[in-house]
């Protein structure tokens, strides 16, 4: 079903600029008997084309916030609108559709599907989107070229270096033209030289107009972003623009 039909666009002018609007979000879950308040009332607006780093020590709730932004998880309370569409009440399959069309994930551990080629990995989101085979080829080839891996298209992901794998992941994140690219510690498993290369790639995507949200605990990486949101104990500690 189309998500647009159930939208909850508000007339708020501030909100119409924000591609992502989080308001008073809490997230509570249980580990055994223990209640964990991972997010305790987070409000955050991110505009189109912004380059934001989310930082915080472990246990600060940044993973939970990232999962929420990535529509992998829904808030316990509060609201989350992505491009004006409320995500809170969505079913699991509707969330899958949103992730497919609006979010481009780049993970620390690359998370490519093993055994299949670079081309097939990049093609996968388009398959789930339902793009016909003829159209897919062109889009996938373009995405692979944009990360400089044209000559590796037929390689299996386990035949690639870490840096190359992360490029594949970025190409995969791009194919569905997402609203936001969500990069979770994208350089965490890379040496500093390759990490720098990946950051150059992300910076370039930002220059092209992509909205990028970077989750990291390294100040060096966060400096690439133009805005840094720091979390502590499930609350936003600071939100600074450079």
């Amino acid at each position: 079903m189309s998500v647009q039909e159930s939208d909850q666009v508000t007339s708020d002018t501030e909100m119409s600029e924000a591609i992502l609007k989080i308001k008073d979000v809490t997230r509570t879950y249980f580990m055994g008997d223990q209640e964990v308040n991972a997010l305790r009332g987070v409000s955050l607006n991110i505009n189109k084309g912004e380059y934001v780093a989310i930082m915080g020590p472990s246990g600060s709730g940044k993973s939970t916030l990232m999962n929420t932004i990535g529509c992998l998880d829904v808030p316990t309370s509060g609201s989350y609108h992505l491009e004006g569409v409320g995500v809170n009440e969505m079913s699991e399959d509707q969330l899958a559709e949103i992730r497919n069309e609006k979010i481009g994930f780049v993970f620390q551990t690359f998370n490519l599907v093993p055994r299949v080629s670079v081309f097939q990995n990049v093609e996968l989101p388009l398959i789930y989107k339902g793009v016909p085979k003829r159209k897919r080829r062109e889009i996938v080839e373009k995405a692979i070229a944009s990360v400089g891996l044209e000559d590796r298209s037929d390689h299996k992901s386990n035949e690639l270096s870490g840096g190359q794998r992360q490029r594949v992941a970025i190409a995969r994140a791009l194919v569905c033209e997402p609203s936001i690219i969500l990069a979770d510690e994208p350089t965490g498993n890379l040496d500093s030289k390759t990490g720098a290369e990946i950051m150059v790639l992300l910076n370039r995507l930002h220059e092209k107009g992509h909205t990028i949200i970077l989750v990291t605990h390294e100040d060096e990486i966060a400096e690439h972003a133009h805005r840094i949101v720091r979390l502590r104990d499930g609350l936003i500690e600071s939100d600074t623009r450079s």
Binding site: D93, R99, F105, N111, Y128, R172, C176
Partner: peptide, 11 residues
């Protein structure tokens, strides 16, 4: 998990 993250539905 990967497939679901990039948009695979349960079906």
């Amino acid at each position: 998990g990967i497939r679901k993250a990039i948009g695979a539905k349960r079906r």
